[in-house]
Design a protein around this nucleic acid. Sequence first.
DNA 1: GATGAGAACTTATCTATACAACTAGACAAA
DNA 2: TTTGTCTAGTTGTATAGATAAGTTCTCATC
Lengths: 252, 252
Amino acid sequence: MTPTATPPPSDNRPRSPVWAAIATALSGEIASGHYSPGDKLPTEAQLATRFGVNRHTVRHALARLAEDGLVHARRGAGVFVSAAPLDYPIGRRTRFHQNLSAAGQLPGRAHLHIETRPCDQREAQALGLSEGTLVHVCEGLSLAGAVPLALFRSVFPAARFSNLPQRLAELASVTQALAAEGLADYTRASTRIVAKTATAMQANLLHIAQGAPLLRTDAINQDATGVPVEYGRTWFSGDRVTLSVTPDEIDR
Amino acid sequence: MTPTATPPPSDNRPRSPVWAAIATALSGEIASGHYSPGDKLPTEAQLATRFGVNRHTVRHALARLAEDGLVHARRGAGVFVSAAPLDYPIGRRTRFHQNLSAAGQLPGRAHLHIETRPCDQREAQALGLSEGTLVHVCEGLSLAGAVPLALFRSVFPAARFSNLPQRLAELASVTQALAAEGLADYTRASTRIVAKTATAMQANLLHIAQGAPLLRTDAINQDATGVPVEYGRTWFSGDRVTLSVTPDEIDR
DNA sequence: GATGAGAACTTATCTATACAACTAGACAAA
DNA sequence: TTTGTCTAGTTGTATAGATAAGTTCTCATC
């Protein structure tokens, strides 16, 4: 077989794999507004042609974007943009905080994206659903004044909270939104904490350096009867946030 | 194309992908102890033969396991069981050895340095001493089997535990050493958690990459009357440890 | 014993192909 | 209008093979 394209000139190897470059290119186009949330990306075949690679290489890139929550695929339909990372790599035009103020967002909390989609396996397990069940997904930023403190992604069972997306958009907190949907109270069932380093997208949103340390918490909230109502994953900026645990609160 | 089958949604096929079944099988074997943390899994080729599938199908399964943090691959070396993120509950009676033993790990401890010196301001505040008071300082490495889990530095008031350095060197755990010094019981007063990245020295001691994420906990233990007896700072390898908290105090 | 070259092995990436599963729209029939 | 069916298009899964890049061990050499 003759290698048709991209013969590395043997001088220096591209340190990053092709799929990573494609992922970067696509996320940049999403960030720049070339594709908007809800838009359908070109088909995998078209992207493969455009980048001059095999379809599987494109799929690898799309898988990475999906892992970061930027896109999601629907079999038979296409790949759709989930959320736009504001001001991606070195964009110096868009001003995130100004956008927030202009959009009239409440200080302390900014929603990047709210959508309803089938859940994946992990979300299904956390919420006690079967894979593919519809869930509401809310992604956003927690702020302290002008400083972003954390990224969060909350997942709720859609069947139980039919109007939750609207509530979340209107109200200031998850608690209020759930209350408006008839859930008076809920409790934290479990919290797990791990340390991760920031991806490029996370670093940009949190205004920290790529590779900076993050505290990631995985939490499950449940109602009074023990049924999971929210699966939340939060990335805290490692140097701006300290999680504090004291026994009094534990025993409560 | 000829209509081959099922125009109506008749026969319900248990359509779970082969790679998912393989991932489930492997994670089950890890969970059951068939493979222990640090162990090397069979090579991708061997697994492909065993399950009767192509190597890429095995890779898909392994990718899922890696995403969940169960395994990690090293190019050229193999795929290894990632000391399955050891869940480390934090509560009033947090005990390193108990946590590990409960997780089926063999707790270990390697002392790097034990000394007695005047305390600095931070240590004085944590222990309720005045700056310059003599303290015992014990630095070391916590192990699960042969895998380094964490670096620690424990600071004790020297006046109260005169022979503690010797006890620490002889005995296997802090709990035992304090008991030998007359302290029957102690409880966790507070725990603060932050994320950091590993310095070169820390990375070397923990066998991780420089810049890898760390969970740093600052803990104060106190006796039954509320007097601080230990100020401990621990750096957990972010890949190998999960801190688990029960309260609903982790605010978002 | 220490060192370095090299072989054997292993994972990572990329290409190519085929089919299955699912979607959305067109279109005919009731 | 409504319903059912078909079809073209799209993503998901699986197979197969090739090459690159990193690891580990052996062994000859100094």
